[in-house]
Computed example of a mutant assay.
Amino acid sequence: MKTYKVKVIDVNHMEINGKANHPLWEKAMVLNDFSSPWHFEDVEDIEFRALHDGTNLFVSYKVNDSSLHIDSTDDTKKSVDNSDRVELFLRSDKHLDPYYCLEIDPLARLQDFIARPNRVFDYLWDWPKQDISIKSDMTSSSFSVELSISMEALKRFKLIQNDGHIEAGIFRAKYNQKQNGQFEPTWITWVDPQTETPDFHTASAFGKLKLENFKLSKKA
């Protein structure tokens, strides 16, 4: 499995503002080897970073994009589903039973749901609001998204393995307007799942986020 090292920082030193410009982000490894295995067009630059302080997991995305598509019908999960967005999937085990999906658009709107094998999705489920913070920022040529996720929630959902790693899918949906006027997504991923058609909801689409200097306590 592809592995990304999540470096540790001092507790309470990180603040997110949506711009992903806090000096501590310079300490994080840059993950930018994204591709779209099912499409021929080039993938615009995407940078993913992650840090942790033992209390929270911090994640940032920076995406170059001068032609964002945002469904502004309303603020429902369905509108997020029809918009450009970044995605973070977290699984409890290789059987995907269950796994948790966080999809965030450039307005920091969240489509979150719990999923099980064979695309069984529960859109009525929400990630606990007290355990997540999301902010975003847009410019004429890019957008960025930041998340802060509590370690307590990750432990509660059994998403941190005993050796201190999290199994995650890191994705992007880019909507392009076709000749018929309809917008259709290009699916972009960190890990190539080796599927004939686009599919993030498969075990082979996940990699590892290895938390530096972190191990589960026996009580967890």
Rank of each mutant, 00 (worst) to 15 (best):
V120M: 14
Q130Y: 12
D105H: 07
W38M: 04
D93T: 09
K158F: 14
M29W: 07
A153T: 13
L102C: 08
S36D: 04
D93A: 11
I114K: 08
L147A: 04
T55G: 05
V145S: 05
K135P: 06
Y99F: 12
V43A: 05
S72T: 15
D33A: 07
R85G: 08
I166G: 03
S142C: 13
S144I: 08
F121Y: 11
R172Q: 11
V30L: 07
I114Q: 06
S136H: 02
S140K: 14
Y123I: 12
T55M: 07
M151V: 00
Y99I: 06
K78P: 10
H69S: 02
T139D: 13
S67I: 11
D81Y: 14
E47M: 10
L159C: 05
I46C: 03
D81N: 15
L31A: 08
G169M: 05
V145W: 02
P117Y: 12
I104K: 06
H52E: 03
D122L: 07
I70Q: 00
L51Y: 00
D131S: 06
A115R: 04
T55D: 08
V30P: 02
H39D: 10
L68N: 04
L110R: 05
F40T: 15
E41P: 11
R156W: 14
H165F: 03
G169T: 02
T55E: 11
S60N: 01
Q161M: 07
Q111S: 15
F48A: 00
D112H: 05
T76E: 13
R91A: 05
F171S: 03
Y123D: 09
R172G: 01
N64V: 14
S150V: 04
S92E: 15
D33Q: 07
K155H: 10
N64E: 15
S142F: 11
D33L: 01
H165D: 00
E44P: 15
S141C: 15
I134E: 01
L57K: 01
D93E: 11
D53V: 03
G164T: 01
V43F: 06
D131Q: 01
V30S: 00
H95K: 15
I160Y: 00
Y61I: 01
D81C: 13
M151S: 05
